[in-house]
Design a protein around this nucleic acid. Structure first.
Lengths: 156, 156
DNA sequence: ATTTAAATAATAAACATTATTATCTTATAG
DNA sequence: CTATAAGATAATAATGTTTATTATTTAAAT
């Protein structure tokens, strides 16, 4: 399998290749300046499949941009969320996490270790299409969580 | 329509009458003491269909229990959440909201005014059951959000 | 190269939530 | 019906994530 660029993204069950140029395009089209920090932050989210927190993104980006500020990370994450490149997920412990997959899918979340695993049930796409149809409008986003206790957390 | 008790609850599309005695039963069975504060907090959530915040619950309960502490409200809300009587919903603005309906349903959320409206699509229950079946385990809870901008917020 | 508008870094501040602790209450046992 | 122990509450301080502020720097257009 050939990757056409540095950035890529899983979307709607299909792999969509998101090249650096495309990210830049999206930022420009939305009236935002293209900065090394923004590229690095976006890359950090994409490269971690763990739905990272803002702090985890900050630590990751710091490896290559040692002087970056946490405030910049927070701002940028909101910016990326507003233009639809990431999904911000708030939790009741006060910590938000960020998902690079903005398409409808199920987040399987362990209430013990707080691990999040994306899941695509076969029947889910059909369900969601039906739901949207009955709602009568096209949502600007969605979040589907299923809470459980994973095997590891059940044993202890 | 006859209400058999003071407390009632919409659940899974059916109305379930949750009388004071039943709430007390549930608390006792879970090893929690029955206190006036807990009854008042539960009643406050049930009586408001607005998915209130902890602070809104606090203000409501204060009308009848002027000396109640915010800490008690927070603790009790978590307790009620743990025994499955309310659903806690974290948001990225750092404020949690509480839903007395713990059954699978769709939260239609306006990103402008942050208003939440519960929605029951006709075919949803059956299709959701199918999704759960494919998952292969029974969740301890779920959250299905649809984000939009309501008419009022679109006009401005 | 200049200019302007926006982004960043650093810091302080805000805010919801949690921890702590002494007092009080529930529920149980005598 | 009291005494007791475990648990809950109220008040307050503390925590920790996120946001506001501001001077400096940078992107991108002229």
């Amino acid at each position: 399998m050939l990757f056409l660029g540095k950035y890529y993204k899983l979307n709607a069950g299909n792999i969509i290749y998101m090249k650096t140029e495309q990210l830049i395009e999206k930022l420009r089209k939305s009236g935002f300046k293209v900065t090394p920090q923004r590229l690095a932050i976006f890359e950090a989210i994409l490269s971690s499949r763990e739905h990272p927190t803002a702090d985890q993104v900050y630590e990751k980006v710091r490896e290559t941009h040692p002087t970056i500020s946490p405030a910049t990370v927070y701002q940028t994450l909101h910016t990326l969320s507003r233009i639809g490149l990431v999904q911000e997920m708030g939790f009741s412990d006060g910590v938000s996490r960020f998902d690079p997959d903005t398409s409808p899918h199920i987040n399987v979340i362990c209430l013990g270790c707080r691990r999040i695993e994306d899941y695509k049930a076969e029947s889910f796409d059909k369900l969601w299409a039906q739901v949207i149809k009955e709602l009568g409008f096209k949502p600007v986003g969605q979040r589907i969580d299923v809470y459980t206790h994973c095997d590891k957390c059940t044993r202890t």
